[in-house]
Amino acid sequence: MEHVNLFIKAVFIENMIFAYFLGMCSYLAISKTVKSAVGLGMAVIFVLSVAVPICYLLEKYILKAGALTWLSTDFGSIDLSFLSFIMFIATIASIVQLVEMVVEKFAPALYASLGIFLPLIAVNCSILGGALFMQEREYATLGEATVFAFGSGVGWFLAIVALSAIREKVRYSNIPDPLRGLGITFIITGLMAIAFMSFMGIKL
């Protein structure tokens, strides 16, 4: 039950886009059509739910203060947490590269549709943000970290698909010239975020 709560919290209440504004750059850049938004959203879900658990294991067995005791009790006083940025980002970048190669080899059709977005995910803040939130909130088990990561990915997916659907409609409306394109997209996202704030009162 706890995991279900955590999942719902990650999707709606602590939505990556609407509550923390993570992964905003690709969110605004690749939401022009629903089709590409779905592709990017899927890729983000996948990379998040692979990368965050790996970062969790790194954090637990290498980086945290006293985490190296499984090697030898002498290492109990070592605290490597200042290395976490570089470890996490290296992990994420290499996972993205790995995923790219695997998908290219075994699912060429998927690769063709995702192609350009896959490498972009390495610099999507929502992935590193997920890893850093995981570290900051100190999830107790690997299961919790995975559920949190998957939930955040699903939340991101929902947000980008919703925005791209709205943008497809907005293209045909009559908007003041200077506001067209980027400006109105910002305001739409702001309004969507206000709508999502109504989830904040829910206590799980």
């Binding site: 923390y20 504004f21 997209t185 910002f186 305001i187 702001g190 975020a193 704030m197």
Partner: peptide, 9 residues
Amino acid sequence: PPMAMIVVG
């Protein structure tokens, strides 16, 4: 946070 989006817009 949502107002930040609108201000930037």
